[in-house]
């Protein structure tokens, strides 16, 4: 089984539309939405949830006013500014380090495990999907990403799948790091803009740091051909395998509005370009020996 993780650095370059299309084109695949912070893949795949699980991770401090002696020890120790002068913990600022709980001389600080979100096993018209929903403003997104990837991988192995297709988050921080470690390859979806190229460089460097092979495609290439070709040239010098261009095409948006992938939507040029991209990605991954 090969795991391909689709990332981008910059947000809004078309990751999820491409993952949805690849899901429609692949055979014997398991799907994973690792963008747990703002998951969108389910909006294209209309999954039927088969299993729903709580995601608990980390702890939050809570001061019991009955037991508290107002000594203020916790206030002095907390490095996250999570305790107010009148000794109430702000759960949004609490980092879950437990220092206040450990040292409280009155034993007045509880430290329960927190419910940070939910994750799901679902069925879709293109195979099983493992996805999640991180609670709004919650932490531990990296842990939830690791969890959904692990479960998706387990399901893939049980089903003898050939492909695990993972929709990654934007950026280069904690959830992205959790998304790419140990993958067969990442496909970086760039766009022909100064931001697209800048962000491609940073996320490409991240893939290199974690020794994951990087493939690159340029979406919306015809909005700025000079920029698109510049990315192609950059990939050659940086050692990323360049996979080709996709057009700017309002059909991607129209398909999304109808909750369809571009593959199902019509037979237009956008579909043809995505099919060609998928075939090239498959060849690139089959040519390399990297497996999961």
């Amino acid at each position: 089984m090969k795991e391909l993780v689709i990332i981008s650095g910059k947000g809004g370059t078309g990751k999820t539309s491409i993952v949805g299309a690849f899901a429609a084109l692949a055979r014997r695949q398991v799907l994973c939405d690792a963008d747990v912070d703002a998951a969108d893949l389910h909006l294209l795949l209309s999954p039927t949830v088969v299993e729903r699980h709580d995601f608990r991770a980390g702890h939050k401090a809570s001061i019991d006013p009955e037991r508290c002696t107002q000594c203020g020890d916790c206030l002095e120790r907390c490095r996250f500014g999570a305790i107010s002068p009148d000794l109430v913990v702000d759960p949004l600022q609490c980092e879950g380090c437990g220092v206040c709980h450990h040292f409280c001389p009155a034993g007045a600080i509880d430290f329960p495990e927190s419910l940070c979100g939910e994750w799901y096993f679902s069925q879709t018209r293109f195979g099983p999907l493992v996805h999640a929903r991180l609670g709004i403003a919650e932490e531990n997104s990296g842990k939830l990403v690791s969890l959904v990837r692990k479960e998706a991988r387990r399901m893939g192995e049980e089903n003898h799948a050939d492909w695990l297709l993972t929709d990654g988050p934007p950026g280069i921080g904690c959830p992205v790091i959790a998304s790419i470690g140990g993958a067969s390859a990442v496909l970086i979806v760039s766009e022909p803009t100064v931001s697209g190229l800048h962000d491609l460089n940073r996320v490409g460097e991240l893939a290199r740091h974690f020794q994951v092979p990087a493939l690159v495609c340029v979406n919306k290439a015809d909005l700025h051909w000079d920029g698109a070709r510049q990315i192609d040239a950059h990939c050659r010098s940086a050692g990323y395998a360049f996979m080709g261009y996709l057009p700017f095409d309002a059909d991607f948006t129209r398909a999304q509005v109808e909750e369809k992938t571009i593959i199902e939507y019509n037979q237009g040029p956008a579909r043809d370009a995505v099919v060609a991209l998928w075939e090239k990605v498959v060849r690139a991954l089959q040519a390399s020996d990297v497996g999961v």
Partner: peptide, 10 residues
């Protein structure tokens, strides 16, 4: 601000 709704955004 960064995209998303988790701790960096907050």
């Amino acid at each position: 601000a960064p995209p998303g709704t988790s701790c960096p955004v907050m």
